[in-house]
Amino acid sequence: MNFLQRVTKNSKRIMRMKPAAMVPSASVRKLLPAGKWSEGKAMERLARLCNAVLDNLGDQQVLGAAYDGHKALKFAKNPAVWVGPDGGKTWRRFSAPLEYLQLEAMLTASPTGLGDVRDQGLEILDLSELEICDWKGGLVSPQVARIVLLAPSWRPSASGDPEKYFGLVLDFDQRLMDAKTAVAFMDVLANSLLEETYA
């Protein structure tokens, strides 16, 4: 896919990029300890993260919401997420927990690599393989939030030994949430990743 195709594909998004559509977005970053969830391939890790997000979206419906027209919020009955592995080269929508093999199959299904045209729903972007250690992104209506997984680094754990930590960033609409709410969601997400086992 060349650049022209991409721009054409994203033209709707670019046209939407008017001042009125820009969302006052904030980003908070937390550390996510590596563990069982992060073992294996990058795709496997991403699949576990997506499943954990989908599991917890029921309690945090605001994150799965989207702006509908002028400043009105719309809540989806079955919240979906948009997944962008490899730094968002392709985007896929999914709304039910999947195994990583299924996810991999979904992501490589399209021979052109065009993926789906992103629409409403929470975005999950994987930058961990690209060695990106910090991220701040803007949000454009109807987006309300975005989750980004960053590259790992070494830091001391509670016991004092060095341990690997991933960076987890949540971009969110500042009008809709305080930092505290966003952080609470990230804590819930981290806990469910560390405590529960995802396929």
């Binding site: 945090q60 605001v62 001391p156 754990s157 505290k180 969601f185 804590d187 819930v188 981290a190």
Partner: peptide
């Protein structure tokens, strides 16, 4: 690093209506 704490989600489905009203 601070150990992770279990924090209950603050916007449950039952509180959503009141929350968005205020917001």
């Amino acid at each position: 690093m601070t150990p992770l704490k279990k924090i209950p989600p603050s916007i449950g489905a039952d509180r959503l209506a009141g929350w968005t009203d205020k917001r």
